[in-house]
Design a protein around this nucleic acid. Structure first.
Length: 305
DNA sequence: AAGCCTACCAACCGCCCGTGT
DNA sequence: TACACGGGCGGTTGGTAGGCT
């Protein structure tokens, strides 16, 4: 073995004094007060100056993931979940990039959500979480479910309630578009007939569609405020500033997400499953019956999520 | 009540990149 | 050019709480 240099020894001694594990209230307080006085950055020096027996990295992580004032605590809302699904389809495991579009949420939190919830569902379905099949499942079952849930969570008497919840003020750049995965939400002109069926199964009378962007179909649906920010021109789903939320459909017109979600509310899970053209899925390896059962048991029962 | 299982999440680890010297 | 350092990122781990038997 190599001899231990003086420097290495002192480094080891320092490291042995370093605290690890859960932070105490005193440590939190020290960090908060130090940053309040001197600001963030230079984390190693900060740790020493603040009298914390922690690594700079540990301090930084504690601050960014837990102590920072604008951190949002609590469960992810359905719209946040929807956004995560969409952005993950676009960027993959770029958690920090995804987190930038969810104000108050940390990359760590989003990563945990993905690993504990989303990947769990994939495992239960016995499909790879990044696979085409899983993406199909998500976009054809999970996303409509989330949309439905968003509406249920809002005031049931107001058709504009869901869009009122879609207030991603700091997410203007969130393009919500299909990317390399072909992840189109929720209208998939060719790649996902199931979703189109799901849409069309809902009474056309209740779908607020228009081919004229100036024709505002509801108090909250304002085409004039459409904001095309996608890196990709064919953005099928857009979450916009100013509470605008819409889907283009086949003929180039748009479906008001309000009414889309309202329809979903009226459709029971099995109806939705039957309505979907499941033959489009690649079920050969698993067996369609098995997959259908599992879909019903897992994807449609994602209330817990 | 006790033991086991599972889900969740805070925290850590290792790698990488950019910058300054 | 090489090296040190700070900081960011994604992956992983371990503690804990709650549910179930």
């Amino acid at each position: 073995m190599s001899t231990i240099t003086k420097r290495e020894l002192s480094s080891n001694e320092e490291e042995s004094e370093l605290r690890r594990g859960p932070w105490t209230l005193e440590e939190d307080s020290l960090l908060i007060h130090y940053i309040a006085r001197h600001g963030e950055g230079r984390w190693n020096m900060l740790a020493k100056s603040a009298g914390l027996k922690r690594t700079g990295k540990s301090c930084r992580l504690r601050w960014l993931n837990y102590l920072k004032p604008d951190i949002k605590r609590g469960n992810l809302t359905p719209q946040e979940q929807l956004l995560i699904l969409e952005l993950h389809s676009k960027w993959g495991n770029r958690w920090s990039k995804i987190a930038q579009h969810l104000p108050g949420r940390t990359d760590n939190e989003i990563k945990n959500y993905w690993r504990t919830r989303v990947q769990k569902q994939a495992r239960q379905l016995n499909i790879e979480s990044g696979s085409k099949r899983f993406i199909d499942a998500v976009k054809c079952f999970w996303m409509p479910r989330l949309l439905q849930k968003m509406e249920q969570n809002s005031c049931p008497s107001s058709h504009s309630s869901m869009t009122n919840m879609m207030n991603f003020e700091n997410s203007a750049e969130a393009s919500m578009s299909s990317m390399s995965t072909g992840f189109n939400v929720p209208s998939m002109p060719s790649s996902c007939p199931p979703q189109r069926e799901f849409l069309s199964a809902a009474s056309a009378n209740h779908l607020s569609t228009t081919s004229n962007p100036t024709n505002q179909s509801s108090d909250s649906f304002q085409f004039s405020q459409l904001l095309e920010v996608s890196e990709h021109p064919k953005s099928p789903l857009n979450v916009f500033e100013h509470n605008v939320y819409s889907y283009p459909i086949q003929d180039g017109s748009y479906v008001d997400a309000n009414n889309y979600a309202m329809e979903g509310q009226n459709m029971d899970p099995l109806s939705a499953m039957e309505t979907c053209d499941l033959s489009q899925f690649d079920f050969q390896t698993a067996g369609s019956g098995w997959m259908l059962d599992n879909m019903c048991d897992t994807l449609w029962n994602m209330d817990a999520m």
